[in-house]
Every structure is written in structure tokens, then in C-alpha cells.
């Protein structure tokens, strides 16, 4: 159960939570994507320099 800020109605509070959740998921996707991309770049660069 979530507590709502006193100055917001229940509907507003739920909309706020939905937006925050969507933003957090998007941030997770971006972070995982960036980590995977940098890992792939490192692998390619190491292979190009004969370290793999």
C-alpha cells in the first residue's frame, strides 16, 4: 500500500507513481544498454589489438 502526499488527490498520486515507475524502468534499460555497449566496445578493441 502506498501513502499519498497530502496535497494530491488519490488519482493524482497514482498518476505520479506510474510516471516515476516508468521513468525508473527506462533508466534501468538505458543503464544496462550502456554497460552492454561499453563491454562490447572493449571486447572489439581488445580483439583488434590481439589481446583476445
Amino acid at each position: 500500500m502506498t501513502t499519498k502526499p497530502p496535497h494530491l488527490s488519490l488519482a493524482e498520486s497514482e498518476a505520479l507513481q506510474r510516471r516515476r515507475r516508468a521513468r525508473n524502468w527506462a533508466m534501468l534499460v538505458v543503464l544496462v544498454g550502456v554497460a552492454a555497449l561499453f563491454y562490447a566496445i572493449a571486447m572489439v578493441k581488445m580483439a583488434q589489438h590481439g589481446h583476445l
Binding site: L8, A15, L16, R19
Partner: peptide, 23 residues
């Protein structure tokens, strides 16, 4: 800020943008 504004009948909260807004 958490000022509430009406936009197309939806609830708009300053600083609480959707992913689509950032995009």
C-alpha cells in the same frame, strides 16, 4: 516544484515528466 497543472485533461506535475517528455 510539484505545482499541479491541467493539460489535455491529464495531470501535469512540474518535474514529474514522462519518459516521452524527456525523449
Amino acid at each position: 516544484s510539484e505545482a499541479v497543472s491541467a493539460r489535455d485533461g491529464a495531470i501535469g506535475l512540474v518535474g514529474e515528466a514522462t519518459v516521452a517528455d524527456w525523449f
